[in-house]
Simulated assay, not measured.
Amino acid sequence: MNEHALASLVEPILATAGLELDRMEIVRAGKRSVLRFYLDGDGPQGQGPSLDEIAEATRAISVALDDSPAVGNAPYTLEVSSRGVSRPLTEAKHFRRNTGRLVTLTVADGSLSGRILGADDEAVALDVDGTVRSVALADITHAVVTAELRKDVPGDDDADEEE
């Protein structure tokens, strides 16, 4: 299977849905291949695609693959998901889509952790222990979201309230 042909087939479908192809993997699994498409996008609240958007995209990709010569007659399994929280943040849009989340950045003089307040094409604003710090995207060598187990997630209407 040709990765370029598959990407060319899928990207217009995703663009119509307001999504982006973050990456794609083709893995041989015996006589079949596993096609993994990882999607990204702003989503309904600007923080990545929703499960409904991923499900709709999966259906559209499946139909397109079935109707396309890009996969030929080779058997395959389709897997579609979001880009994942463990993926490094590498572009301004990744930081913007993770506003409010705790991140750990590696920069030339070490690392720092803080909550993303916002981002533009040049820098990311972090709350580092109550102090706002601006870090140029060009200075960041590695950035990942830090998983948090919290009871009081801002904006989570289902969070338990203290009585």
Score class of each variant (00 low, 15 high):
T77A: 15
E25N: 14
A119C: 15
S111R: 03
S82P: 02
D120R: 04
A55D: 13
L21T: 10
S82D: 04
S8Y: 04
L51W: 09
T16D: 15
T90N: 10
V132E: 15
P49Y: 08
H142T: 07
S68E: 00
S81Y: 15
V145E: 05
E11I: 09
D67L: 09
R32V: 00
P49M: 05
P69L: 02
Q47M: 07
T104A: 05
E56S: 11
V63G: 01
G72F: 04
D121P: 02
L105H: 01
E162F: 08
P12H: 06
A7F: 01
R28A: 14
V80Q: 11
E163H: 07
Y38A: 14
V10S: 10
A7E: 10
L9M: 08
D127I: 09
A147L: 12
G100R: 02
H4R: 05
G72A: 06
V107Q: 02
L89E: 03
E163G: 13
L105G: 04
D139M: 10
V153R: 13
H142V: 03
G118P: 07
K151Q: 08
R101H: 11
H142A: 14
A138W: 04
E79K: 13
A159W: 05
K31T: 12
A74H: 07
V144I: 13
K93L: 15
A60V: 07
G118W: 06
R32P: 00
L117Q: 09
G46L: 09
D109S: 12
V27N: 09
A70R: 03
H4F: 01
F37Q: 12
K93I: 15
V132T: 14
G110E: 05
S33P: 00
G130W: 05
L89N: 03
A55F: 05
D129V: 01
K93N: 12
E11Y: 05
S8G: 13
S68L: 02
V71N: 00
H142C: 01
R115A: 01
P12V: 10
V103H: 00
D127E: 11
G84C: 02
L35P: 06
S134C: 11
E79W: 01
V63Y: 07
L9C: 08
A125G: 01
D52Y: 07
R59E: 14
N2K: 08
A29Q: 11
S82F: 06
L117S: 05
I13K: 11
T99Y: 02
S33F: 06
G110N: 07
V10I: 15
R96G: 04
L21M: 13
D160N: 05
L39S: 08
D22N: 12
G72H: 07
P75L: 04
G155T: 05
A7W: 01
A143R: 06
Y76A: 08
L89C: 03
A136Y: 03
A74T: 10
R87S: 14
E20D: 15
L105Q: 02
V10A: 14
T131K: 07
L78T: 13
V132H: 04
E122K: 11
E53C: 05
S134H: 15
E3A: 14
A64W: 09
E11P: 09
L9H: 09
I61T: 12
L89Q: 02
R59G: 11
S33A: 07
T104F: 00
R23L: 12
A60Y: 05
S8F: 03
L39M: 03
N98A: 06
E3I: 12
G41V: 09
R59S: 13
V107N: 04
D152L: 14
R36I: 14
P88V: 01
D157M: 07
E162P: 01
G155M: 01
